[in-house]
Amino acid sequence: MLDDASSTTALPWFAQPAARSWTCAPAPAGVRDFHAALPGYASTPLTELPSLATELAVGRVFVKDESSRLGLPAFKVLGASWAVHRALAERAAHRPSAEPVTLVSATDGNHGRAVARTARLLGRRAHIFVPRGVHPDAVAAIAAEEAEITRVPGSYDEAVHQAAEAAATAADAVLIQDTAWPGYETIPAWIVEGYSTLCVEIDEQLAAAGATAPGLVAVPVGVGSLAQAVVTHYRSRPPVPAPALLSVEPEAAACVIESLTRGEPVSLTTGHTAMAGLNCGTPSSIAWPYLRRGLDAAVAITDAAAARAAGDLVELGISAGPCGAAALAGVRAVLTGESAEERRTALGLGPASVVVLLCTEGTAANPKRAIEH
């Protein structure tokens, strides 16, 4: 059900508890080994925050801190590096004498920087399309990776369209895009596979912390690629029992919750949001079946809620930008306030439940360790 979003106090919320019984095939083996072989690889921290467990009235809360992943301030490089590896291997197998390619992508910030970083480390060119609303510091960070930048005066979806056109009309270009549409699905699927490393690390870290399997995993959502990876991981395993999976997105760009409510993927005209990396108006075509069947719930949050969560996480020692803090803001919205008990019941949560929040990016000001090659 979706609460009446026309009310200023209603929570945009969708729930389908039957998702815990849905199953799918697992991610392929070998992805974690690929990442582990990259210079500078290390598991990102899974930090327990008891004060949040007290606030949310659950047993334990852990935050997966992606503020420094392979020298970049977000998880995106996991998908970009694996997809580029697969794409270049495929190209070499079919066109061994082809000219070096340019990697093309559209981005709200972190994905484009990850593609540009991967290209630079491999001695390739990168051409990144950036829509309006992306912070100048994020654009400068992409440019610092020696990428060509094209600014798009329109939305993220328009930037994706222009990037796809540019790649299609150039003989030496490969589009590395983290959203899919009919006819362009192989590379986005590889990107999703790359994100599986994050979930494998969480399993290992929870076990090391003596924690039970998570009762709830909250993931920020743009087009849904990371959420697809999370659904794939937890819905392809024997029930232990299976955790509830919650997607969190901005109210100004709530394409996933709107699609879930209608029962089919829809495209929305997005508004402005400080959660720029989540400002996407159309779910990925390959993510949609997983979101439709495997998500237990979805919630949309305000910029103010994300800003509060980011500030609180920073005070607790977690470098969190608005997108990264969205998971905490979403869980707070769901587990507190009016009708919270109904939502807890829908998610199957009790006072001993373990909650995992995916903090997908750090603050722009947070210094990052560079990878030396």
Rank of each mutant, 00 (worst) to 15 (best):
Met1Val: 13
Thr8Asp: 13
Arg20Val: 09
Ala25Arg: 04
Pro28Asn: 15
Arg32Met: 05
Ala36Leu: 02
Ala42Asn: 03
Ser43Glu: 13
Ser51Leu: 13
Glu55Leu: 10
Gly59Lys: 14
Lys64Phe: 07
Lys64Thr: 10
Gly71Val: 01
Ala74Asp: 12
Arg86Gln: 15
Pro96Val: 09
Ala98Tyr: 01
Thr102Lys: 12
Leu103Val: 09
Ser105Asn: 10
Ala116Phe: 08
Ala116Tyr: 10
Arg124Glu: 11
Ala141His: 02
Glu146Asp: 15
Glu146Lys: 07
Ile149Gly: 06
Pro153Gly: 12
Gly154His: 02
Glu158Cys: 08
Thr169Ile: 00
Leu175Trp: 07
Ile176Phe: 15
Gly183Val: 05
Gly183Gln: 04
Thr186Gly: 08
Val192Arg: 15
Leu198Asp: 10
Thr212Tyr: 08
Leu216Tyr: 02
Val221Cys: 15
Ser225Arg: 02
Gln228Ser: 13
Pro238Trp: 01
Pro238Gln: 03
Val256Asp: 15
Thr261Asp: 14
Thr261Ala: 14
Gly263Pro: 06
Gly263Met: 07
Glu264Tyr: 07
Leu268Met: 06
His272Pro: 05
His272Gly: 11
Cys280Ile: 05
Thr282Cys: 10
Pro289Trp: 08
Leu295Ala: 09
Ala298Ser: 13
Ala305Ile: 08
Val314Ile: 11
Gly317Trp: 02
Pro322Gly: 08
Gly324Cys: 06
Val331Arg: 12
Arg332His: 07
Glu338Ala: 04
Glu342Gln: 01
Thr345Cys: 03
Gly348Arg: 03
Pro351Val: 13
Gly362Phe: 02
Ala370Glu: 13
Glu372Tyr: 03
